[in-house]
Amino acid sequence: MKQLLLSLWRFRHFMLSSIKAEFRGRFARSKLGALWMILNPLAQATIFAIVLSEVLAAKLPHVESKSAYAIYLMAGTAAWGLFAEIVNRCTTVFIDYSNTLKKIAFPRLCLPLIIGGSALLNHLLLLLAILVVFLFFGHPPNVAWLVLPLGMLLIVLFAFGLGIILGLLNVFSRDVGQVFTIVLQLWFWLTPVVYTVESLPERFAFIHRINPMSSLVKIYQDALLLGRLPQWENLVFPLIAAVGLFGFSFWIFRRASADLVDAL
């Protein structure tokens, strides 16, 4: 483990330059450039806000604000989007970069870390766009926003650990990626992003309790909508799941990395 971490540290400049290159490559020959990183999520957030608040008049129970449901949905979507982007891209990263892995000698774990860094950058720009919409609604940030880095960290650890494991399995069996695409869609609807936990029938309440993403998404929803810090006892299970999966992914990667290139 120590050697692996040291090798990653030696290639830190390679990973940072790769993240920058991927960021710039998205907007090559675009006059607005990186501004699109804000305009696209801003447009999406604005559409959510207008349609849900003004057209559908969707409301949350026990919250009087007309824009509460739009804020709730944007917060949950932001948290879920960070998780889904990392997991989806990590699942295919070794296959997508198979030629690079065969030709260039570098720590293979750099690739998922580059994806994680890129996804985190996208996420921060999305939060900036959401902030603009919130200000438009008269819903300024508050001290509870300071807990968002904790939510980001736990989501990244959990997504990275799961993504690495799926990425390795996908190399040896390409069905894994196809199956998980369906699983991820189902997982989204089992997570309270578009509905509240209180709206779940009691017989389905256990799904919320065993789903780590429920508590992680709730960090965002509580902070962005209610200005409320999380209930720390509810984060014990997600913390164990995130750190445990992250550590396990390193272990299984070391076991499988010797056969990775041959399988590609």
Rank of each mutant, 00 (worst) to 15 (best):
S7I: 00
S7H: 14
S7Y: 13
L8T: 01
W9H: 11
W9Y: 15
R10C: 10
R10A: 11
R10S: 14
R10L: 11
F11P: 04
R12I: 05
R12N: 06
R12Q: 07
F14P: 05
M15T: 13
L16D: 00
S17A: 12
S18H: 01
S18T: 02
S18K: 01
S18Y: 01
S18A: 14
K20C: 03
K20W: 07
K20E: 03
A21E: 11
A21C: 02
A21D: 12
F23P: 05
R26N: 11
R26G: 13
F27T: 09
R29C: 00
R29H: 13
S30M: 01
S30A: 06
K31R: 13
K31M: 11
L32I: 12
L32R: 10
G33K: 09
G33A: 07
A34T: 10
L35Y: 14
L35A: 13
W36T: 08
M37G: 14
M37Y: 15
I38P: 12
L39V: 05
N40G: 06
P41H: 04
P41V: 03
P41C: 00
P41A: 00
L42Q: 02
L42D: 01
L42S: 02
A43D: 03
A43K: 01
A43V: 08
Q44C: 03
Q44N: 14
Q44I: 06
Q44Y: 07
A45L: 03
T46C: 08
T46P: 07
F48T: 02
F48N: 04
A49L: 14
A49G: 14
I50D: 00
V51C: 05
V51S: 05
V51M: 09
L52I: 09
L52Y: 12
L52S: 02
S53P: 10
S53M: 00
E54A: 04
L56V: 11
A57L: 10
A57N: 15
A57Q: 15
A58C: 03
A58R: 15
A58Q: 12
K59E: 13
K59L: 04
K59S: 15
K59F: 00
L60A: 10
L60S: 11
L60V: 07
P61G: 11
P61Q: 10
P61I: 01
P61H: 09
H62Y: 08
H62M: 11
H62I: 04
V63C: 02
V63W: 06
V63Y: 08
V63N: 14
E64Q: 14
E64Y: 00
E64I: 04
E64L: 07
K66W: 01
K66N: 05
S67N: 11
S67M: 06
A68C: 10
Y69N: 07
Y69Q: 07
Y69L: 05
Y69T: 08
Y69E: 06
Y69H: 12
A70H: 08
A70F: 01
I71Q: 09
Y72F: 15
Y72V: 08
Y72L: 07
M74S: 13
A75C: 07
G76K: 08
G76Y: 03
G76S: 08
T77D: 05
